[in-house]
Each structure stands twice: as C-alpha cells, then as structure tokens.
Design a protein around this nucleic acid. Structure first.
Lengths: 209, 209
DNA sequence: TTCATCTATTGACCGCGGTCAATTCCTTCC
DNA sequence: GGAAGGAATTGACCGCGGTCAATAGATGAA
C-alpha cells in the first residue's frame, strides 16, 4: 500500500470524509490484477473484464475507482515514468551530449517498450483528449524540471546560455518525442532512436551558428 | 470523383483487377455522408452506424472500404492537412520568424480545431498504434519537405546554416507539435500557441550562442 | 444466352468499454 | 444495540466498433 495508491485515489470523493479500508483494498486488488495480466499478455491484451474477474469484484467497481480504462493505464505507466525520472534526477547532471543520452535512456526505453504504451503516453502528454491531469501529464511536467536543472546558469555546463533553462528543457523534450515518434513510424525507422536524437540535441544544445 | 478517392482505395484489392463503378459510388457515398455528419455534429459525434445509415449501405460495407473508423478520419483529416500544405508550399518562402508563423498558421488552426482531431493526428503522426501509413503520416513527411525548402542553402535565408535543411525542418515540426500539444494541456494553456512557438523557433532557427 | 468465377454487399452477431438503479456495507449518533 | 445516512459495490444492461458466412451482382468465356 504505497504512496502512489493514496495519491491518486479520491477522485470523486468529498473532501472531509474518511477513506474506508475496503476502498484501499479493492483498489489495490484491481491494480495488482492489472499488473499480473499485463505481465502475462501485455498491455494490448488487457481487458477490464479480466481485471475485475481476477480481482474478484464487479465491473462497476472498476469504474468507481478509475474514470476509464485509460486512467488505469495512466496510473501504471505514469508511475513507471515518475520512477524513471526519480532515478534520472538522482544522478549527477550530464556534462556532454553522450551523458545526456545516457540519462535519457531508461526513460526512453520505457516509453518505447511497446506501441500501445507510447500511444497512451502521447494521448496523455499533450493531454489531447483528456480532461484531467494524471501521472503521465505530471511526469511530463517533472521531466521539464529535471532537464532544466541540468542547464542552470550557476552550474557550469557546456551548453548554450542564450536562452532560459526551461526553454532548453522543453526543446529536449520535444526532440525526444520527435525521435521516439519517428521510431514507430513505418516510413522512418531506418535510424535508431540515438542516431536520430543525437543530431537533434547537438543542434539544439550546441549550435555553432 | 477526385484523385484522392482513387489514391487510397484498393487496400485489399488484387493488383490487376478492374475497379467496379459501384465501388467508387459506394465509397463516395460513405465519404459524403461522413462529411455531412461531421459538419452537423462534429468529429466527436461521428458514429459509423449513422454514416452507413445516411449512405444507405450496410455496416459491413463500411469496413470493406475502410480498415476501421480511424482510417476514415485519417483520410478526411489528412486530406485537409495535405491541402493546407499545398497552400503553404505555393506561397513564397518566409524570410523571418513572423513570416514562418504566418505560413504555419492555417495548418496549426486545422490541427487544433478540436481535441479529437488533434488526437487522431497524434496517433497517426507518430504512427503509434497504426500499421499502415495514411494521408496524415504522408502529410507529416510532406511537411518536412515544405519546411526544408525554406532553408535551402542556395536561397539566401537569414536562418542558421550549421545544420542541414532537413534537420532544421524536423526541428520546426517537433516544436510545432510541442506547442500545439501544450495548448491542449490543462497545465499549460496560459500562453497562446504563437506565444509559445515564437521563442522555440527563435532559439532553434536563430541561436546567438 | 448461359455458366463459372470473381467481387461487392448484406445484416445478424460478437466483444468490450462504460452506465446506473438497486443493494450491501460502513460509520456515526442516540 | 439500533436506526439513519452516506459510501462502496453489484451486475444486468447499453452503445458502438468491428466480424464473417451468406447472398447478390458484375464480368468474361464459350
């Protein structure tokens, strides 16, 4: 029963009412069942009916806990992303392009582990058709913070200083998404992600003009 | 019966067989019905059952012509995007940032006209969960060509020349998507698209270092 | 014209995400 | 303890995207 469970729980709850124990139990059962099924058949094969069956609850209970199926995926995938970002932030700031790519690697591996996952991430990142912000959207905000910390003016980094760290960070995010997106595109998968991202970041962070 | 109709038609067709007239008729009816419904209730309210009812054909006929509902949206939205790109390519190459934003405006307006539309575009752009390439993916390729033409070394433009035109173009695309995506995000819609894209492009195309 | 062989169309059917009125369970107050 | 008043849970039900065996229609050969 970790913090993540509690954090995103009381979606439709009145503010001042206590959370019943069974609620936490049920939610934990649903998440655990989901993780087990994903481990067995992957995200593509995930069916809410299987989740509730495995968790031993009724269909309606699922939707009392999660707005829809996407919200559940958001929590699982977003949780993984936030964890990857924590690892990233714990490392020393990168001091050249190769180090940046190293830092980005685990997160990118996660995001491209499968098409469905990347699709969910894209939807929740731009928050295209999503009303509320969830863990994935949060992790995109967090990502900017982590990147921007690499480019603070006081830490002496070798990268361009004519623009704000936040702007640099948003650029890194944009190029990362571009590289990942093209990776899944039938037209442009000749190059690897690194081969594509490298020139982007070189041109973005170290322009010669 | 324009070219677009014919171009994307024979998905599952043997190569050397003639196309029956009724096939074209049916397809045209389906597309026309779709356009009419979208005009009335928007993309969100589009239902395949309504489309086939209005077109006067059976449900199965729809899926004999389009792989799925998304493929139909791909054709409609991608068609609009390609048209916008044609207009863009017909104009003289922009010579400063403001002109670039002017050129991009119609396309961006189209892409952000509604959440569902942007969602479809995102899915088909990165081709996240899509197997085949359709008009939207094609338009993303086309976009790079049009942008790259603005940055050819021989046309004397004021932008940076330390990287290839294609790379510059891909960057413009990445920043455009980033700006549009953040527009739909509940966290970051304080700034307008232009206010966000301007600094991106300034930093990307005119770095001072 | 007739027959054989394709192709296009049909509509009953299915899977699955999501809803909601009814029910059970928990907490609080007397 | 018992009653009142939520809060959580239930499962029959629905909407809609997508399938497929069966049927109708087109085409070319004899």
């Amino acid at each position: 029963m970790n913090l993540t469970l509690v954090t995103f729980l009381p979606i439709f709850r009145r503010m001042n009412k206590p959370i019943q124990q069974r609620t936490l139990k049920t939610r934990a059962k649903l998440l655990e069942a989901t993780r087990a099924i994903v481990a067995e058949v992957g995200y593509d094969g995930l069916r809410t009916e299987q989740v509730v069956k495995r968790a031993g609850v009724a269909k309606g209970t699922f939707f009392a806990h999660f707005r829809d199926k996407d919200a559940l995926l958001d929590i699982l995938i977003g949780g993984d992303m936030l964890a990857a970002l924590d690892d990233m932030a714990a490392q020393p700031a990168p001091r050249d392009l190769n180090q940046i790519m190293d830092r980005l690697n685990p997160l990118m591996a996660l995001m491209t582990s499968n098409r469905t996952v990347f699709d969910v991430i894209l939807r929740h990142s731009g928050a295209a058709a999503i009303e509320t912000i969830g863990p994935i959207a949060e992790s995109f905000g967090r990502m900017i913070e982590v990147f921007a910390a690499w480019f603070t003016p006081d830490g002496d980094h070798p990268f361009r200083t004519d623009v704000t760290p936040e702007l640099l960070a948003e650029g890194v995010q944009a190029f990362m998404l571009q590289a990942l997106g093209l990776q899944f595109c039938a037209l442009h998968n000749a190059l690897s992600v690194d081969e594509r991202l490298g020139p982007y970041l070189q041109a973005w962070l170290l322009p010669v003009r």
